[in-house]
């Protein structure tokens, strides 16, 4: 009996691992079904691409063509760059040329400045002993998930009129931050981004710097190098990959930001609004400029998509290292 059981077990095991040992209809169906996972994957890929593809194709069609047939019915003679030239040049249609420049004017400082600041702090948290380091780092991590919304109102008030504090029990008010005339400028937007970016930046860079081998630091200290030398000559060159990862992350984040820009600059206007705000305003007049939205969305997405496809590796690295960003 025992031998038969073993034989049957083996047979069953083989049947489970390899459908081909079975014969007949069940086997055929099984083989068919075992191919399904990769089909499903590619079906999902197609579903995922369709919305973008639809918009992309439509962005090269005129208003009437867009409104008369679905995107895969596009004929070659419908293709035109008119939508792009309109949104790029015409102020009435968003003035995206100006918006493009403004987006850069916000995203570049908001990317570069936090890196410098965060690198110092990350090094301090990773390799300098000081009182309350643990506690401060926990405080920093707890800031990671804080929604930006909680800080917007006071920040806007500060940009609009400075920060003033009335001393309790007196009528005296002292100015902590003078009115620097930042309201409605792109400076206000990227300054806000710095504060919001720092917890994540410090966290990400700290994790990387902490993983550097300890013996470098100890021997350098013994040789008389101070923290600044170690930071500048050893840690910074070794951290370039993670700095790049954060830079890409932060660039996409600030380029795509809508909330902070629209809060600091107002939805309607001013000459300093970035692409997101301009295009969102274009949505408001959906009927009239509907056909232009297609091109607008692609002008807005061109830079992030280029950065994304060229530097995906670093983007993923940043994502994996700091996936607790709020």
């Amino acid at each position: 009996m025992a031998t038969i059981d073993v034989a049957r077990d083996q047979e069953r095991m083989q049947a489970l691992t390899d459908g081909s040992t079975r014969t007949g209809l069940v086997s055929t169906v099984y083989k068919f079904l075992s191919g399904i996972p990769s089909w499903i994957l590619w079906i999902i890929v197609i579903l995922w691409t369709t919305p973008t593809l639809s918009l992309f194709v439509n962005s090269f069609r005129g208003r009437e063509d867009q409104r008369s047939s679905v995107f895969w019915r596009t004929t070659p003679d419908q293709l035109t760059m008119d939508n792009y030239s309109t949104v790029w040049n015409s102020q009435a249609a968003g003035g995206l040329k100006e918006g493009f420049v403004n987006s850069f004017a916000i995203a570049i400082p908001a990317t570069i400045i936090p890196i410098a600041i965060a690198a110092f702090a990350a090094y301090a948290f990773a390799w300098i002993d000081f009182k309350g380091r643990e506690l401060m780092f926990i405080g920093l991590v707890s800031l990671l998930a804080i929604p930006n919304q909680v800080a917007l109102l006071p920040l806007l008030q500060t940009y609009a009129g400075g920060a003033h504090q009335t001393i309790p029990f007196t009528d005296k008010t002292i100015t902590l931050i003078p009115d620097l005339g930042l309201q409605g400028t792109s400076n206000a937007v990227w300054l806000s981004h710095i504060g919001f970016a720092l917890p994540f930046a410090v966290f990400l860079l700290h994790n990387y710097m902490k993983s550097l081998p300890k013996d470098i630091f100890e021997s350098a200290r013994i040789d008389g190098a101070d923290h600044f030398t170690i930071f500048w000559r050893l840690v910074l060159p070794l951290s370039i990959p993670v700095l790049a990862a954060f830079a890409i992350f932060q660039f996409l984040w600030t380029w795509n930001d809508y909330l902070i820009a629209t809060t600091m600059l107002g939805a309607g206007g001013g000459g300093s609004t970035p692409l997101t705000v301009r295009i969102a305003a274009l949505v408001g007049e959906f009927g009239r400029n509907e056909h232009l939205l297609t091109a607008g969305a692609f002008v807005m997405s061109a830079v992030p998509l280029m950065v994304f496809f060229a530097l995906q590796k670093y983007f993923v690295k940043g994502l994996l290292a700091g996936s607790v960003k709020g």
Partner: peptide, 18 residues
Amino acid sequence: IFMPLAISFVGAAIIWRF
């Protein structure tokens, strides 16, 4: 599948509006 993460929420909303 990862690509939409690079597009802004505003852009994604427009894409789906269509």
